[in-house]
């Protein structure tokens, strides 16, 4: 039997090999901040100077995201959150299904938030699939803005909108843009955090990118 006729490796085996070799980018290193609408042009200008993909002008995106939760049947752990993104400006692209774990802020010495993350491209009836799976829709929003790249780093500057029920134009939830600096990497590549911190410093004082603790935000009084 020739070499081309050997039995194919099973999917389970190839997955466990990939896991063992630690080549699956399942960690997200993240810094977040925001900038007022009035100052966003200056920030975009600065990013155009710093980033790689600027020859053809800034890359734009317009996504809609639906966040689902799946309750633990034993009620012991927090619900599992799954997010589905659909590009509104490129409708033939697949859905992006995303699992995001609990963020780990670490101590003062850790430069970024680290959270486990799985990014899965999907096609088919994903929303119905998740509904039938037992997931519940928690919230949804649309997000529109610009995407920059610098090496492995991804920088998005985008505005978050409420989903409008009628044909009204979508309503922004605030007068500022959300700025995110993130890298997806396999486990243990903590050095990238330092690079991100260094890059974030170059954007000061236009925007302060930091480790955001959602738990603390939740306790802040809403007036």
């Amino acid at each position: 039997m020739s070499a081309t006729n050997v039995a194919p490796i099973t999917a389970t085996d190839s997955l466990s090999q990939a896991l063992k070799a630690n080549i699956i980018p399942n960690q997200e290193y993240l810094l977040q901040g925001s900038v007022l609408d009035s100052a966003v042009e200056v920030l975009l200008h600065r990013l155009r100077g710093l980033c790689d993909n600027v020859d053809a002008g800034p890359e734009t995106f317009d996504d809609q995201e639906v966040c689902f939760s799946l309750r633990d049947p034993n009620q012991q752990t927090a619900p599992l959150m799954l997010r589905v993104r659909k590009a509104l400006d490129a409708r033939d692209m697949p859905y992006q299904l995303r699992y995001i774990g609990q963020p780990d802020l670490g101590d003062k010495n850790r430069p970024t938030v680290v959270r486990s993350s799985l990014d899965i491209a999907c096609s088919g009836m994903l929303i119905e699939f998740l509904n039938e799976l037992g997931c519940r829709i928690e919230f949804e929003y649309s997000i529109k803005g610009y995407m920059f790249r610098k090496g492995r780093m991804k920088i998005t500057v985008a505005k978050v909108f409420k989903i409008s029920q009628s044909s009204m134009p979508p309503e922004p939830i605030s007068q500022s843009y959300l700025v995110e600096l993130s890298v997806l990497a396999p486990q243990g590549q903590d050095a990238i955090g330092e690079d991100m911190r260094a890059f974030a410093d170059q954007l000061r004082p236009l925007v302060l990118l930091d480790k955001i603790d959602y738990k603390r935000l939740g306790h802040m009084a809403v007036t």
Binding site: A11, L15, I24, P73, L80, Y99, S123, E128
Partner: peptide, 26 residues
């Protein structure tokens, strides 16, 4: 996904297997 009356199909990339591991409680 088979749920009594409905069969819903989804085609995903290889990482979907990892998600199924995350769903091992469910």
């Amino acid at each position: 996904l088979e749920s009594g009356t409905k069969n819903i199909h989804v085609i995903a990339d290889g990482l979907f297997d990892l998600l199924m591991m995350k769903l091992s409680q469910h």
